[in-house]
Write a protein that binds this DNA or RNA. Structure first.
Length: 193
DNA sequence: ATACCGATTAACT
DNA sequence: GTTAATCGGTATA
């Protein structure tokens, strides 16, 4: 039940952070309501040297500047005009590395998540649906994950290497050869029991 | 000011 | 397999 420390995020290896986030628990207390889920899928984005990153080439804009800041903050942006995508900023200040959380396995607050999603069945298997379930929106861009609004806990869940599927990232075909990099990590939530 | 487009999803055939 | 929905970010003028 312990919140991940700043040092977890400040790692200079964003791909390693991406792998180690599997099995951790993403928690929100938005509107005072607790919702949470086990992270089951992530992707690493390697900043300036990654054609798939918003920070490719060292580009700085009002949208992506949070990625250049201190590790352990949330980078949240709107995609396709509809979906709020949640990322964790890693590495040192000035290095725009981040991990996209693509899927969770719901834990606490199922009723709240169902209501937010306006759905009969609770699916959180995509980067846009999980943020909807957890109440994450672009207005929380820049939130410190060591605070009490949005944070990530280690509850001792171990995801063995043999269960982890590694492959190319989704939806980044425009990134040329970088679209083929093995920066996507996921596992079948069935192993959680 | 105007035009193009996306780290997606759900509902189709 | 296909495609409409939808709007802020970004580039261009």
């Amino acid at each position: 039940m312990k919140k991940l420390p700043r040092s977890f995020y400040a790692s200079t290896d964003v791909v390693d952070v991406s792998r180690r986030l599997l099995g951790k628990v993403l928690v929100t207390r938005i509107g005072g309501v607790l919702t949470s889920g086990v992270i089951t899928e992530t992707e690493a984005y390697m900043g300036a040297v990654d054609k798939a990153s918003h920070a490719y080439g060292g580009k700085v804009t009002a949208r992506n500047e949070i990625m250049y800041g201190e590790a352990g903050h949330a980078y949240i942006y709107l995609c396709y005009g509809i979906h709020h995508l949640f990322n964790v900023v890693t590495n040192l200040k000035g290095t725009a590395h981040a991990v996209l959380v693509r899927a969770i396995h719901p834990l606490e607050g199922r009723e709240t998540m169902l209501r937010r999603r306006k759905a009969r069945t609770l699916t959180t298997g995509g980067p846009g649906t999980l943020t909807q379930a957890l109440g994450i929106r672009t207005r929380y861009n820049g939130t410190d994950l060591l605070g009490d609004l949005i944070y990530i806990e280690d509850r001792g869940i171990i995801v063995p290497d043999q269960e982890v599927i590694i492959g190319p990232r989704i939806g980044v075909d425009y990134a040329g050869e970088d679209a083929l990099l093995p920066y996507r990590f996921h596992f079948n939530p069935k192993i959680l029991g």
